[in-house]
C-alpha cells in the first residue's frame, strides 16, 4: 500500500468518523468551559461598572489588559494578548514544542493532564471503531472498547511519558549548549539555522515516540494484546523496519494539521470588531477549527491503522458509525 492510499483511506475514515470527532470536540469544550466561566467572571468583575465595558467591546485596550494581568493570579494570568487573538494556536504550538505546557499554569496543567487521560480512555474506543467490524460499531461498543483498553493504554502512556520527559530534558540541555556553541556567531540567520536543525531533532524525537505509541495502541486493539511491553516492542520494530511508511504518514497528516492551523490563523476573524455577530462568528470559526483538528487526528489514526493492517497483512475493515 502506498502512502497516498493510506492517507486517502485515513481521511475517508476520519470523515466517516465525524461523530467521534464531534464527541471529542464536545468533551474538549466541556473540559474547558468551567475554566472559561471562571475567567469570564474574573474579567467581568474587573471591568466592574467602569466605562471599560464600552471600550472593550471593540479593540483591546492594552493598558486595561496590563492592569488586569497585574492583579490576576492563577488561570487569569494566562489572559494574554496573543491568546485572545488568532495567534493563540501558534502560542500552543510553541508551548508544545518547548515543553512549557506543563509549566504554564498549574491549574491548566492539571486540567490538561485530565484531558490527556480522557483521550487515553477514548482512544481505545476510537481505534476499535476505526479497525473493528461494522457490526461492532455504535456507542455501546465504543464505550466498551474505551473501558477495555484504558488501563492497558494507561500503562503505555506512563512509559511514553517518561520518554517525552526525557526528550524535553534533552531539549533544555541541547539548546543552551547550542547557544554556548554559537556564542561567537554574529549572524542571526546562521544561529537560526542551527536552532531550526536542533528543533527538528527534538520534534522528530517527540514524533517518533508518538508514532510508536500510536502503533502500540493500534496493535493492542487489532491483535488484542494484553501485554503493553510486547505491543510497545512490536511497535518499535514496526517503525524501525518500516520507517518511511510509518513516519511519512505521520508527517503528512501532521502537515495537514499545520495547514489547518495556518488557514485558521489567517481566516479567523480579528479581535477589533464589536457586537454580538462578530463574537459569535469568531467563536463558531474557532469551534469549527477545533472540530476539524479532531477529524485530522482521527484521520491520522485511521491512516496508521491502514498502514499497520497493510504491513501485517490483516484484512482491512472498520468504518466508524458511532
Amino acid at each position: 500500500m502506498n502512502l497516498f492510499k493510506a492517507i486517502g483511506g485515513g481521511l475517508a475514515l476520519g470523515l466517516r468518523s465525524w461523530r467521534i470527532a464531534l464527541l471529542l470536540w464536545l468533551m474538549g469544550l466541556l473540559f474547558a468551559l468551567p475554566a472559561a466561566v471562571f475567567i469570564e467572571e474574573a474579567v467581568h468583575e474587573f471591568i466592574g461598572s467602569s466605562l471599560a465595558h464600552e471600550t472593550l467591546r471593540g479593540p483591546m485596550d492594552l493598558a486595561w489588559l496590563e492592569e488586569f494581568l497585574d492583579q490576576a493570579g492563577g488561570m487569569s494570568s494566562t489572559f494574554e494578548p496573543s491568546r485572545l487573538s488568532p495567534a493563540a494556536v501558534i502560542d500552543n504550538l510553541e508551548l508544545w514544542f518547548s515543553g512549557d505546557l506543563f509549566k504554564e499554569n498549574s491549574g491548566l496543567a492539571a486540567l490538561g493532564i485530565l484531558f490527556g487521560l480522557f483521550w487515553t480512555l477514548m482512544s481505545g474506543g476510537v481505534l476499535a471503531q476505526l479497525t473493528g467490524p461494522e457490526n461492532h460499531q455504535g456507542l455501546a461498543p465504543f464505550l466498551a472498547a474505551s473501558s477495555r483498553y484504558f488501563f492497558r493504554f494507561l500503562r503505555l502512556v506512563l512509559v511514553a511519558g517518561l520518554a517525552y520527559y526525557g526528550i524535553y530534558r534533552f531539549s533544555t540541555w541541547l539548546f543552551p549548549r547550542l547557544e554556548q556553541a554559537t556564542r561567537d556567531v554574529t549572524v542571526e540567520g546562521t544561529v537560526l539555522a542551527y536552532n531550526l536543525i536542533a528543533a527538528a531533532i527534538v520534534v522528530l524525537l517527540l514524533i517518533l515516540v508518538k508514532v510508536v505509541v500510536d502503533y502500540a495502541k493500534i496493535g493492542t486493539v487489532i491483535e488484542e494484546r494484553r501485554s503493553m511491553s510486547i505491543a510497545g516492542w512490536r511497535a518499535v520494530q514496526l517503525v524501525v523496519t518500516h520507517p518511511i511508511r510509518t513516519l511519512s504518514v505521520y508527517f503528512s497528516m501532521g502537515l495537514l494539521g499545520l495547514l489547518l492551523t495556518t488557514v485558521y490563523f489567517f481566516l479567523a476573524p480579528g479581535v477589533a470588531a464589536s457586537g454580538l455577530g462578530p463574537m459569535v462568528l469568531a467563536l463558531v470559526v474557532g469551534q469549527l477549527y477545533l472540530l476539524l483538528r479532531w477529524m485530522v487526528r482521527i484521520s491520522l489514526l485511521g491512516a496508521e491503522s491502514i498502514v499497520f493492517q497493510s504491513i501485517h497483512g490483516y484484512r482491512r475493515q472498520g468504518a466508524s458509525r458511532l
Binding site: 474538549g28 468551559l33 475567567i39 500552543n92 463574537m279 474557532g286 469551534q287 477549527y289 483538528r293 487526528r297
Partner: peptide
Amino acid sequence: KWTARWLVWLQDLLTYF
C-alpha cells in the same frame, strides 16, 4: 467577547495534551 477568544485558546491547548 474576550473569554470566547480565550476559550478557543484553551480548547486548542487541551488537544496538545
